[in-house]
Design a protein around this nucleic acid. Structure first.
Lengths: 344, 344
DNA sequence: GTAACTAAAGTAAACCTTAAAGTAATGTAT
DNA sequence: ATACATTACTTTAAGGTTTACTTTAGTTAC
C-alpha cells in the first residue's frame, strides 16, 4: 500500500493550528513563538514531512534551482565544470537541473524553454556548436531570468559571460610551435561561427602572421569539436597525401580523434605528425605520447559563473550590469610539440 | 521591463473560451472540436505560451521527470550512462533531473528526498561507495516511486537492478593473468561493502583459488574507486618495497592513479609493474601503454535501466515484480597484462 | 414528439504552499 | 484613559494547471 505524502495540513491538524502557522514555523518565521515552532518541527520530523517542491515553487514563483545546459557531458571539460557547479550550488542551498543538448540547437532551445517553465532562478549555459537562432535568449532576458554564458557564448551584447582567453591561449601555443621550428602548421578549428572556434582561430592566425609563417588553407579545416571530426579531418588530409607537420586542434576530443586516426594509419606522434590541443583532461599526461595543451582552469570558470549568477539572482530587481570575465590559460608542454626534445 | 509568462488564461480570454477548454485543446483532448483546437494552438504559438511546469505537476501529481543520482559525473562510466539515459528520456518525452552525490551518502539521501519532493515519476540510481543507511530507499518504496538501481546497488531484496556480471568479469581477467604466467597478483578492491567491490573481489578470489595461486593479503587493499585511492595504495606498497607483479584494479580511475604513481616513481608499465582494470574509457586505447580492461557496455546498462523504469512507471498501479538484469562484460586486451607479447 | 444519446463546451474543486491582510490579546507611551 | 505597538496567530486569496462533474444544444430513434 502506498503512503500518501505528508502535507502541512496533516501537521496542522495534529496540533490544532492553521497550515500557515506550520508553514511559517518550518521556515523560522518570527511570527511564530519559539515553543510552537519547536513543537511543529518535532511533529514534522516525526511524520517525515518533506515539502512539496512543486507547490512551494508555484506559490513562491521561484524554485531555488539553477538550470545548467551543456552540449556534452561525457567530456572532461564539461564534466569538471558541472561537478564544480554542483559543489557551489549545494553549498548555497540550490538545486541543479542539468540538461544536455548533445550539440543540437533544437534540443537546446527546448531545454531552455523547459527550464523557464520550471521557474529556475537562473541559468548557466554553454551553447552548442550549431546554435544560430538566438531568439530564445531574448525571451530569457525579457523574462528577467539571470543567465551566465560560459566558454561557448552567442554573439549577444549585454550578457554575463565567463570565457577563457582563447585567442591568447591559441597564440601562445602557435608561437611556441613556431619557435621550436614548425612551419607547416594546420588547425582543426571546430566551428568558427562560435566564439571559441573563432578566437582560437584568430590566435592561430595572429601568431602565424606575426612570425610571417604562411597559412596553408588546406590545413585549416572546420567541422566540429568532437572526436569524429578530428578523425575525419586527419583522414581527409592523409588520403590527399597532404599532412602538415603539426596540427593544432580546437579541443581535446579533436586531438583524440587525431590520435586514433594516426594510430590507425601507422603514423607516429610526435615524429611523423605532431599535435597540440586547446583544452585539457586529466588523462592527457598518460596518453602515448602525453599530449601538450592549452590548459583551461575549469574550477575557476565554474566558480566565477556561479558567483556571477548568484549575485544576479540576489539583485535581480536592481539594474542589470553585465559582467564579462576572462580566465587566463596556461600552456602545458608534455610529450607533443616539444621540438628537439622530441621522443625518437 | 519584465514580461510576465503567458498562461492558459491569457489564451482563454483572447478567444472567449474557458481556461479548461484551452488546457484540453493543447492536450488534444477529444472534448474539444478540431477547429477550436487549431485556433487555440495557433494563438498559443503566437503568444509564445509555455506551460507552467510547477502548476502542471502540482495538479497532475506527477512530473514526466526522471531523477538520476550518480556518485560522480566527470568519469567516463557515469558520463556515458547519463548521456544514454538522456537520449532515451528525450525520445520518450521525459525530463531528467541529475543529481551528483560526490560519493557522499548524506548528499545522496538529501538528493533522493528532493527528487521525491519534486514528484519525479521514477529514479535511476547508482549508490555511493559509503551508502549504508538504507532507510531512504524504504521510503521511496512506500511512496510507490519506481526505482532502478544500476551498477552499484544496495543490499535490498525485491528491487529492480541492472548490473554487470562483476564476478565473472573479474574472474576472466584474473584467469587470463594467471594463464599468461602471473602469480604475484594484487587487487585494489575499492570497497567490498558494496556489490561491485564485493563481486569483483569474489571473482578475483575464485580465479586465484581455482588455479591454486596464493593470495597475499598485503596486496589486497580496500579504499575507494577514485584516482587518489589508486595512487595512495600503490605508493603504500611501493614504500614498503612490496609490490606485486600485476595489479587488478576495481575501476578505471584507480588504474589511472596507479599510472600516475608508477610514472612518478619511475616504474614502467607493464614491465616493472603491470595493470589491468575493471571498467572502460574511450581513451584507454591511447594511454601509455594502452590499458587492458574488463569492458562494461554502458549503453546497454542505461538502455536496460530506462526500459525497466518506463515499464514500471506505466504499470505503477499493478503488482510490482522486480526485474534483475545482468549485463555481460568483455575482456579487452591492449598493452597491459599481455604476457609474452609484453612491450620491451 | 419525446426519450436517449453525443459533441463541445463550461464550472467547481483540488493539488500544496506562501504572501498579504486581518484579529485578538497584551503591553507601552503620553 | 486613550492611542499606538507588538506578539502570535488565523483567514483569505493566489499561483496555473488538471480532473471530475455539469450544462447546453443538436442529433438520432422510434
Amino acid at each position: 500500500m502506498r503512503d500518501r505524502a505528508i502535507t502541512l495540513n496533516d501537521i496542522a491538524k495534529k496540533l490544532n493550528v492553521s497550515t500557515v502557522t506550520v508553514s511559517k514555523a518550518l521556515r523560522n518565521h518570527p511570527d511564530i513563538s519559539i515553543t510552537t515552532t519547536k513543537e511543529i518541527k518535532r511533529i514534522a520530523e516525526e511524520l517525515g514531512y518533506t515539502p512539496n517542491i512543486m507547490a512551494r515553487n508555484l506559490s513562491a514563483r521561484h524554485s531555488n534551482t539553477i538550470g545548467v545546459v551543456v552540449p556534452k557531458i561525457a567530456h572532461f571539460f564539461f564534466g569538471s565544470i558541472i561537478e564544480k557547479i554542483y559543489d557551489v550550488a549545494f553549498a548555497n542551498n540550490y538545486e541543479i537541473i542539468l540538461m544536455v543538448s548533445e550539440e543540437k540547437a533544437e534540443r537546446e532551445r527546448k531545454h531552455i524553454q523547459t527550464l523557464m517553465a520550471m521557474k529556475v532562478d537562473g541559468i548557466i549555459i554553454s551553447i552548442t556548436q550549431e546554435t544560430k537562432d538566438l531568439e530564445v535568449f531574448d525571451i530569457v532576458r525579457r523574462r528577467g531570468v539571470p543567465i551566465v554564458f560560459i566558454d561557448r557564448v552567442p554573439e549577444i551584447k549585454n550578457v554575463n559571460t565567463v570565457l577563457v582567453n582563447d585567442k591568447l591561449g591559441a597564440f601562445r601555443a602557435i608561437e611556441h610551435a613556431i619557435k621550436i621550428g614548425y612551419r607547416k602548421i594546420g588547425h582543426f578549428a571546430g566551428y568558427t561561427n562560435i566564439n571559441i572556434g573563432k578566437n582560437r582561430m584568430n590566435g592561430f592566425k595572429e601568431a602565424m602572421h606575426k612570425y610571417k609563417v604562411e597559412i596553408n588553407p588546406d590545413w585549416v579545416i572546420e567541422g566540429g569539436f568532437g572526436e569524429n571530426y578530428g578523425y575525419e579531418s586527419f583522414m581527409k588530409l592523409y588520403k590527399a597525401n597532404n599532412l602538415p607537420d603539426l596540427i593544432f586542434t580546437v579541443s581535446y576530443p579533436v586531438a583524440l580523434g587525431v590520435y586514433m586516426a594516426a594510430s590507425e594509419v601507422g603514423l607516429k606522434i610526435p615524429n611523423d605528425i605532431d599535435v597540440i590541443c586547446f583544452g585539457s583532461a586529466k588523462v592527457q599526461k598518460f596518453l602515448s605520447p602525453p599530449l601538450s595543451c592549452v590548459d583551461q582552469p575549469t574550477d575557476k570558470i565554474a566558480a566565477e559563473a556561479m558567483s556571477i549568477l548568484l549575485e544576479n539572482i540576489e539583485k535581480r530587481d536592481e539594474g542589470f550590469i553585465p559582467i564579462n570575465r576572462v580566465i587566463d590559460t596556461e600552456l602545458i608542454l608534455r610529450g607533443t610539440c616539444i621540438g628537439d626534445e622530441k621522443v625518437e
